[in-house]
Design a protein around this nucleic acid. Structure first.
Lengths: 191, 191
DNA sequence: GTCTATACTAGGATAGAC
DNA sequence: GTCTATCCTAGTATAGAC
């Protein structure tokens, strides 16, 4: 799956051949077809793995008992760290959004896609709920929570396109990046 | 080009066949191959058109003589309106970011891709410059302008995935959406 | 200019050896 | 379980009629 994620990251789902994935893995496609019925199934598995990473990274924080604003900050921070540390999977998960727009072939695949979208909805709902609570107690401005979550997740997802790991990066600079992202998203940029 | 944009929007570049584009256009692929040497060339043309729309929409505002903050607000507003009114082209332009990651075949195509990336850089620079100026005169917080532009453009680009035109939408609700986007991106969501 | 017909190939998927 | 060999479809691109 890591090999597939890497291959999909570089070329995208449609342009990646199973031969390429096999090459990254260091074997032939026989091995892959032994485990996965089709290329789509492989993609779905990578996609699910990515979504589970995300849920795992933020769900404990989301349900903690810090203030909503503090939790929201931690959630953003955690998500940035996941993107940094698991970039190939995260990029696949962003590709998944696009793929879902097009119609998948078999009805079985559509069902799988359905469960993936459910995971994505769950994930988004964790943010929405914390935002709602923050608004209720007056910590956050009273925008429509279902709206404000969009630019927020957009900024996070977009990271997969511009972030590139860097040699002279330390844990400290990574934390800094995550902090800055949270600062900008929560506090805006007006002085 | 509009037909191509629509087809690419629905299925993505790789999964869209020239036959499909022809069908949307209401002709056969002979006509398309008469005008475009290859599918990639068609995509590039749509992509360029989208980038030019963006530049056209914001460049006058960006170079106006209002305060940097006021200009930035207008730029965000204008870009949201472009996404709303020209969704297929805008989605293609977002796909273009991903496509550039993978290697295109011919050297000629790589050159075209290069000019497209230049357009994108110009576009980003318009934002960065206004942000820099805003920081200099103290209207904006002193974050790294090259960083803050990323979440900003991420939020805008991501719109192409969640925005869907709606029957009971009026010019007023569209303006409202653009305003809200600018509010959230500039002022944050902390109360 | 746009059509129909066709060549050509990449790549998904399967069969069967080991 | 993983390989090699092969089938077969989809889809890019071209040739040539009209």
């Amino acid at each position: 799956m890591a090999a597939a994620a890497e291959a999909f990251m570089i070329n995208g789902f449609a342009a990646t051949s199973i031969d390429t994935v096999a090459e990254v893995l260091g074997c032939t496609k026989g091995r892959i077809y032994y485990q996965y019925k089709s290329k789509a199934d492989l993609f779905f598995d990578v996609h699910r793995e990515a979504m589970l990473m995300n849920l795992f990274a933020i769900s404990n924080v989301a349900k903690g008992n810090a203030s909503p604003l503090a939790r929201l900050r931690k959630m953003i921070h955690a998500q940035v760290m996941v993107v940094i540390t698991r970039l190939p999977f995260q990029r696949v998960s962003v590709q998944g959004v696009e793929l879902h727009l097009s119609g998948s072939t078999t009805s079985k695949q559509r069902e799988v896609l359905r469960t993936l979208m459910d995971l994505r909805d769950q994930y988004e709902k964790l943010f929405v709920d914390v935002i709602k609570e923050g608004i209720r107690i007056g910590e956050l401005r009273p925008y429509d929570p279902n709206f404000v979550v969009k630019p927020l997740l957009g900024a996070l997802n977009w990271m997969t396109y511009w972030y590139h790991p860097n040699r002279d990066e330390t844990d400290q600079t990574r934390q800094q990046l995550a902090d800055n992202m949270a600062d900008v998203m929560l506090g805006g940029i007006i002085a």
